[in-house]
Design a protein around this nucleic acid. Structure first.
Lengths: 253, 253
DNA sequence: CGAACCCTTGATACGCTTCAACAAGAGTGG
DNA sequence: CCACTCTTGTTGAAGCGTATCAAGGGTTCG
């Protein structure tokens, strides 16, 4: 009971420099990143250009001043984007859980990444040199569209985030976050659904993504469980009243 | 003295439906939007595909549920992005002043715009049907890169905004905003620079972009002028101590 | 065992919003 | 022309939400 699912390995410090561990690339990773409509020819060329590496928890995936030569994606694990502070702590802005793009934007601007990226758990990373993608774009115009769509989704998500930061308080943001973590609440919305949200990350990291301190995060979780909307047990949260939670996220109360 | 430079024409209400006023397209508008490296062939094709329209202050440029078929840019004037509320008011998230892209992202996602856009002043708008751009992309791959770079800049700006919202208080954000409004503080940083920032928009709109209320905006302006960093006279702000302002924006104090 | 880390809870402080009131134009219509 | 209204910006007082500081308990690891 109450066991800790994951733990940043001691003091968060890189143990060794990045060990380049070539690993079996899953065949459909590209269709997850780019969308289902990617041709197999393009797929092969991406395979040829990719660079795989693995980072342990706490390691820096890239630094904000480091020149962005690649498109970076997370295949497995989760990586945090934010600013590393001088005292070694890291203030997280958002976390990216694989398989998902980590930084699709910086490479097109010809400068640095602009943010630090730190592995929050052991993470498999894939990098595509932007000059390779550039060449591919000439032959595969539909690849460009998928890149555009990917960036557009990032824009959406960031715009929503800053809207929420201004217009919603911590409780409402928490409810919204909780809903996003619920497994596909599509068809079977019947009553006796055992909706359990497991937390794969530290609670302070979740709090940072919501733009609040760990203390307020804890208090707001308690408030929700007092109101019988959820039930918290260590690192797993059971959703008791999905409709009420949804109403809360919409701005009720 | 103290004359009001701009005023949203009375109650903000659309006077008439959008009057499609074809106007002379400035030849270099595309190089401003896409970057200087745009070929003249592509330029001509964009010209052929473009749709121009003019909106009066208070008119909706697009609605959030409206399907996004075009890339939208502002040529002249300024347009606000945000949410129109039921009571007719508009809560602004960010404002776009021409010439600049207004919505480069939504059209690639195949859904709605996601936000409402309202003209804050009389504004000239240009729209490029996304299917035309799609076709152009096949022949002009470098166009795709410019679009990617444009979206990447938007991502940068939005990420910075949400960082600032979490980590900086109103005073620091105001200082930063003020600096962005200063005319190219490049070479002549000598002492006797008469740095005057004219406000083209209502102060409440500036406040909304900073994520604060008009009241706090007013108070913070006063705080800065009490400390002799600026001098406020109606709708024009004279910067008295640029270095101090810069230090403040960096996080000093 | 102690050390380090994480989460929780309480008390306090601060920043900002909200509400209310007021002055100063700007547009309107008699 | 002068009321009259509408909008904007400013200022003050009060209250809410969240951060900060401090303390304690639980767990893991050396």
């Amino acid at each position: 009971m109450m066991q800790r699912p994951r733990l940043a390995t001691g003091r968060i410090v890189a143990r060794s420099t990045t060990p380049p561990v070539p690993q079996i690339p899953s065949p459909e990773q590209w269709s997850v990143l780019f969308g289902p409509a990617l041709g197999s020819a393009a797929c092969e060329q991406l395979q040829a250009a990719q660079q795989l590496r693995t980072h342990g928890a706490g390691q820096l995936v890239f630094a904000r001043d480091q020149r962005a030569r690649d498109l970076v994606a997370v295949l497995e694990g989760s990586v945090g984007l934010g600013q590393r502070r001088e005292d070694g702590s890291f203030d997280l802005q958002r976390s990216v859980t694989g398989p998902q793009w980590l930084d699709l934007s910086s490479a097109w601007l010809g400068g640095g990444h602009g943010q630090d990226a730190m592995a929050l758990s052991r993470a498999r990373i894939v990098e595509l040199p932007v000059h390779c993608v550039r060449e591919l774009l000439i032959e595969q115009p539909e690849l460009g569209e998928m890149l555009l769509a990917g960036l557009a989704r990032t824009v959406r998500s960031l715009a929503r985030m800053s809207y929420d930061l201004v217009h919603k308080d911590a409780g409402h943001r928490l409810a919204e976050w909780l809903l996003r973590r619920c497994p596909a609440q599509s068809a079977s919305e019947s009553a006796s659904d055992e909706l359990i949200v497991p937390l794969a990350e530290r609670k302070r990291d979740v709090a940072a993504q919501l733009g609040i301190t760990p203390e307020t995060f804890s208090r707001n979780l308690r408030a929700l469980s007092t109101r019988k909307l959820i039930e918290v047990s260590g690192y797993s949260i059971k959703v008791l009243n999905l409709p009420a939670l949804r109403a809360l996220a919409q701005g009720a109360d």
